[in-house]
Amino acid sequence: MDIYIIGQQWVNGLVLGSTYGLIAVGYTMVYGIIGMINFAHGDIYMISAYLTAIFLALFAAMGLHSVPVVLLGVLALTLLFTALYGWSVERVAYRPLRRSTRLAPLISAIGISLILQNYVRISQGARNQGVPPLLEGSFRFPAEALDHRFIQITYLQSLIVITALLSMALLTWIIQRTALGRACRATQQDRVMATLLGVNTDRIISLVFVMGAAMAAVAGFLVTLNYGSFDFYVGFLMGIKAFTAAVLGGIGSLPGAMLGGVVLGLAESFFAGFVNSDYKDVFAFSILILFLIFRPSGFLGVPEVEKV
């Protein structure tokens, strides 16, 4: 087997896995804090893809063409608006269900997912959308290669990996080191006790949704730039994959989400690349099942200790 092909599959898997990881963060944080699978998260990601394209087009229409300005401006706006979507969804559909059974928010989330998909379909049309290539070019190793004997990573792909790592580090820092993060962890550990100690848990939960949505926005922004194509349905598959990654890494754990994403991405890439892409997803789900049987709390999850 060609070393270049193997190397290229590493790159492919790493890039794919980083995007899974970014979206998985939303699942893992929400699950950690209120024990709920937020099925609408994939659609939040979809919204952010649309927002990215809309703001890109808006910037172009205003005559802004400097790449760094456009990139940062669009990222900031997308982040802001996606976070607003995340916040509103929590406020409208999940907060009224805070004190009910644990499955009620799950159904509500499925409803929200339907609403978001069809809201975007009706207002933006069902057709496939895209963005023009903004940042072209790639690093190649070795630099002057003939034929196909090289490994390459495009600028955008490297941006995806770096941004994923950076935002994960930032988020971990927030959770571990700041007062806000301490309040988050307190709420996660014991909501009633945290409330008694003066933490506004409703606000903290809102904030978790906002942070999850922001990470989905980063993913939506980068993925949209990289693949340049999306429609109102992209959230579904991405959501399931990211959720799988979150569980694989140990749900509730931030670094676990990233690790789970990368492992899933690599597994998919290698299986598709060297075995068969038809059964790629079968393989991904099979390793998930097998892994959970032998290590039921994922890579980095803390095993649940049940006290009686």
Partner: peptide
Amino acid sequence: ADYRVLLVGIAMVWMMILRPR
């Protein structure tokens, strides 16, 4: 027609809020 699935979604959320159990 076009709004069918959207309305189903809204109905699902609303029913859950009204009758969470």
